[in-house]
Design a protein around this nucleic acid. Structure first.
Lengths: 344, 344
DNA sequence: TTGTATGCGTTATCAA
DNA sequence: TTGATAACGCATACAA
């Protein structure tokens, strides 16, 4: 082993051992074209003998690149995000990028703070899922970055940026149409924050689909992506004089709240109320009845974002691409015909 | 703004602007005790005027510290792990540590590979949840690290290391006792890999509790933490001549397989078979019937691990601490009396 | 208390 | 094709 008394073994020791210049060692290890086979051999022998590993810190400092990607996300413990993170990590890992994950904890002010932190860490690129697309601080911070950024299901006003988005509209329209065909004339959407693209895209799509059918109306309850909002908004929707007969839950967390409210009111699904949700969770398949689900391949979303970022990292002058990924609607028993009695 | 033509603004520009030496700027910014108030003022003024930010890369290289912690985990998309990761990130973030997450994807060979990657990245410390505690490569890599490590629910043979573990035995004993009191005399545990502490601790506890009661036997099916194993192992257990009348699922993923097998056989819970599972998932509360659960505060596990690591980082010569966190058993309707008819 | 000068471990420029 | 050497941006030992 090449254990040196003081600390680690550096390129100097390798050069000395191989009897060549430091610069030659560097050239060999960075695959410079102009090196003789003999030189290669000697250097590699010394490297192996000393068990030398280049110091990435020094390399980063010299090259101005860290080969680290920053990943800003609302909350890694959200299964949706953690799946995306895994997909991204797999894509990045293939190109030897590491991933620094930071959470905004759903606090919009933390978007800018965490971006700044990542920038200070000198990450080479960003994958970003903002909590709020409209904060001036956040936008300024984003625009100030002089490295590739991939937005995850987000769009920032007046800023062209590479992004990976899901085709929320199509999935939502399919679900709405299904409910309408079952006779529902009032559909509630317990949505998340208006400040992110998916919420707006879904609400728009639902409203559009409903408007396209005479006598069908939609109720959208904006709020946060939380159980609490899911529960409260469902209560509010059902407390209306003419409550919806079908409800769409805007996320896994919201779904929990929706189901809580439904349980508290002792409503039967779908006899009293039809339910649809976005994004499948692992145990959903065992719920009774099975839930109609608007779903997408979360792993793929992350992987695509990772690939797109790597692509931009390879050639920083590439025009920003916007990739749209499919969304499916899977009907299930939780979607039934509109109840004939209007009471609850 | 301190925009410089070429690149970023460095400490040199600040020194020049303030009319002081580079070292004085450095001292002020690193809160050196011996600096006059006047100097402080001038430097901070220049810093503010130029919008100077120290280059962490250069700092890291100089200090030999990155203020980054490496987090090795089986699979961040596993809700259990992602909750732990969130807790850890919160603790680390408080001490201005960033977190580099890498996944071993449940492949034991990747434990060593990913650890090596993190080491090359020069992280200051590790939080590690191994896929396999007994691989020589992994152990060698771990022992070769010359920085603090916190093991997550793992223990490495013949190596003292700081760790955060759950009190698996107590939760498992409580569940077993509950089932035994309900009259069950054959309890199946669909466990995960024998190569990690939780599996062994749980199996041991179950076997011990069963042995302590005359006529009660336990069947442990080891395997992987996967749906596939959950399903296959459950099938195998139920196909025995004297199948268990209660089954404990070793993880969320295993639970999915267990429930699949149960559904395929059209067994009723708990009339035909009682079910208990480890680790609560978000939608579990809406399953019919509710599942008896052996659970713990995953967020706290991560947070504790983060704190413990920070503590070790503060004083590297601290003796390794082992922190044991509580595990609760929450009975529910899925645990019923032993079926009187022995058929299935 | 402040300034000067060296080195951290590389890569890259230039000359040989 | 190879070698000597100057940065990269900062922290610190030492001198003043």
């Amino acid at each position: 082993m090449g254990m040196r008394e003081g600390g680690r073994v550096g390129i100097r020791e390798v050069a000395k051992k191989a009897g060549v210049a430091i610069s030659s060692v560097s050239r060999v290890l960075s695959d410079h074209p102009d090196v003789s086979p003999k030189m290669r051999e000697r250097v590699y022998a010394a490297v192996k003998a000393l068990d030398y590993e280049p110091d990435v810190l020094a390399q980063s400092m010299r090259l101005g690149k860290t080969r680290i990607v920053g990943f800003l996300i609302g909350d890694i413990s959200n299964p949706l995000f953690s799946e995306i993170a895994l997909g991204a990590e797999m894509a990045l890992h293939q190109d030897r990028y590491a991933m620094l994950i930071v959470n905004s904890h759903g606090r919009f002010a933390d978007d800018a703070t965490q971006l700044r932190l990542l920038r200070k860490r000198r990450v080479d690129g960003f994958i970003v899922s903002l909590t709020d697309e409209n904060q001036r601080d956040t936008i300024a911070e984003l625009q100030g970055l002089d490295c590739p950024v991939v937005l995850l299901d987000r769009e920032v006003p007046d800023w062209r940026c590479a992004s990976v988005v899901s085709d929320h509209a199509s999935g939502t329209r399919a679900a709405a149409l299904h409910l309408i065909e079952l006779g529902h004339t009032s559909i509630g959407l317990v949505a998340g924050s208006e400040n992110v693209l998916p919420t707006r895209a879904r609400a728009e799509a639902l409203l559009a689909e409903c408007s396209a059918h005479a006598g069908v109306e939609a109720h959208v309850a904006y709020g946060s992506y939380s159980e609490a909002h899911g529960e409260a908004a469902t209560e509010a929707l059902l407390a209306q004089s003419k409550p919806p007969t079908a409800i769409i839950a805007g996320s896994n967390q919201i779904l929990v709240g929706v189901l809580r409210a439904i349980r508290r009111r002792h409503l039967r699904i779908p006899a009293d109320l039809s339910v649809v949700t976005y994004d499948r969770s692992p145990l959903a398949q065992f719920l009774e009845p099975a839930l109609g689900t608007i779903e997408r391949d979360t792993r793929q979303i992350g992987h695509t974002a990772g690939e797109l970022l790597v692509e931009s990292l390879r050639d920083e002058k590439l025009p920003p691409r916007r990739i749209v990924l499919p969304v499916r609607f899977e009907p299930a028993e939780s979607c039934g015909p509109k109840p004939t009695t209007s009471g609850n």
